[in-house]
Amino acid sequence: MALNTPQITPTKKITVRAIGEELPRGDYQRCPQCDMLFSLPEINSHQSAYCPRCQAKIRDGRDWSLTRLAAMAFTMLLLMPFAWGEPLLHIWLLGIRIDANVMQGIWQMTKQGDAITGSMVFFCVIGAPLILVTSIAYLWFGNRLGMNLRPVLLMLERLKEWVMLDIYLVGIGVASIKVQDYAHIQAGVGLFSFVALVILTTVTLSHLNVEELWERFYPQRPATRRDEKLRVCLGCHFTGYPDQRGRCPRCHIPLRLRRRHSLQKCWAALLASIVLLLPANLLPISIIYLNGGRQEDTILSGIMSLASSNIAVAGIVFIASILVPFTKVIVMFTLLLSIHFKCQQGLRTRILLLRMVTWIGRWSMLDLFVISLTMSLINRDQILAFTMGPAAFYFGAAVILTILAVEWLDSRLLWDAHESGNARFDD
């Protein structure tokens, strides 16, 4: 018995066209964080690309023209004298008006014999932002004059995390709450300039795509075929072959399989920071003279006294001054041990922890910024005066060393310790 099946006739004509040209192939790229070699397709503007294995951002879609970056830099340069030299806060102490600005706080630190601690604050609040705007201006002028731009481009990517104007702005709020127990506070004209400078700096850093600047100024022929001998440069993120001198053909720094002496430098910085954190938390970090009496505060006791007036601000200072430094030390110690013992479990967790400490590390400088600003506000000789204690130097040095330890660690070593050939990683 035959089955009668109805015929289905399409209502619209289906047209099949042959592909007349070869589909576009992607360029081969190595991930600078996990060293995976993959094919990167062509990316349009405002599109980002991520590593298929570790999800690290390979290409950032946010990109401004150099002219727009230069305009932002010149605007920031105009704001800087007002943000640093004009009063941020006014207080009335014992019937006398006192003005506080950024430069005055750094000068008070240096004047009291601790120039190293003052230079830490100076670099993060004044030096690094000033280098940022002058570097962008150098790129703008240098591109037109045919100057060598490689050193500036190499420095810009590392400079971003040292620009800490946003953290200093939080420190202004913390210092205001600490001082309000002794005097009446009012915002100064410099505060508005400083807030504007923070906003412009944040926007500029978020749109400063150094890798795209490398592509514009020093374009290189990408690798179009897969080759395990391809290496990625950690300076400019170019994937290719080393030249005859073993250097990256684009930025001219040595092109090595792994960062040289990464573990040794990381261990040295980490152990030194552990040693410095002990006096930083045991010795007094601030000293207040009130009517001839002397009151010393460690980091913890200062947080407890701050909690009596504002528990939320005390929580912020606790996280930045105690929780973050010790968390960074514990995480980095764990990561280094996992590399030495070739741990194969929990790779995803370790990668996330490394990215976390990379982002939060700079916030530990908050305590030094609060001390710097408070020193310029309260300084009335023996009637009422505020000065920093010996722990300030140890704390600042420990924070900087932990930042350097994270920067010096080559994250690809975590993958080397893991089993080879993993296309995915999980716990």
Score class of each variant (00 low, 15 high):
L3R: 12
N4F: 09
T11H: 12
K12N: 12
V16W: 12
G20V: 12
E22M: 08
L23R: 14
P24A: 10
D27T: 12
R30I: 12
C31D: 01
Q33V: 15
E42A: 13
A49P: 05
Y50D: 15
C51L: 00
P52G: 05
D60V: 10
G61R: 14
R62E: 04
D63C: 15
S65H: 08
T67I: 15
A71T: 10
A71L: 07
A73Q: 03
L79N: 08
P81S: 07
E86F: 02
L93K: 01
I96S: 08
N101W: 03
M103A: 03
G105E: 03
W107I: 09
K111V: 02
T117V: 07
M120T: 04
V121F: 11
F122L: 13
C124D: 05
I126E: 06
G127L: 01
G127T: 07
A128S: 13
I131H: 01
V133R: 00
L139E: 01
F141R: 01
R144W: 13
L145R: 04
N148I: 01
L153P: 02
L154D: 02
E157A: 13
Y168M: 13
I172W: 02
I172Q: 06
G173C: 04
K178I: 01
V179F: 01
Q180E: 12
G190K: 04
F192T: 13
V195A: 08
V195P: 06
A196P: 04
L200Q: 15
S206P: 13
S206Y: 15
L213V: 06
Y218G: 05
Y218A: 05
E228N: 12
K229V: 08
L230S: 12
G235I: 13
G240S: 14
Y241M: 05
P242N: 09
D243H: 08
H252L: 06
R256Q: 03
H261W: 01
S262V: 03
A268C: 05
A268D: 04
A269D: 03
A272N: 01
L283E: 06
L283I: 09
I287P: 00
Y289F: 07
T298E: 09
T298M: 08
S301D: 02
L306W: 01
L306Y: 00
N310K: 15
I319P: 14
L323Y: 01
P325S: 05
V329R: 02
L336E: 03
S338C: 15
I339V: 07
K342S: 10
Q344T: 12
G346R: 15
I351D: 12
L353E: 05
L354F: 08
M356P: 13
G361R: 01
M365C: 06
T374D: 00
S376R: 14
G389H: 00
F395M: 11
I400E: 02
I403W: 01
W408D: 02
L414G: 07
W415Q: 08
D416W: 10
E419L: 10
G421V: 09
G421K: 10
A423S: 15
R424A: 15
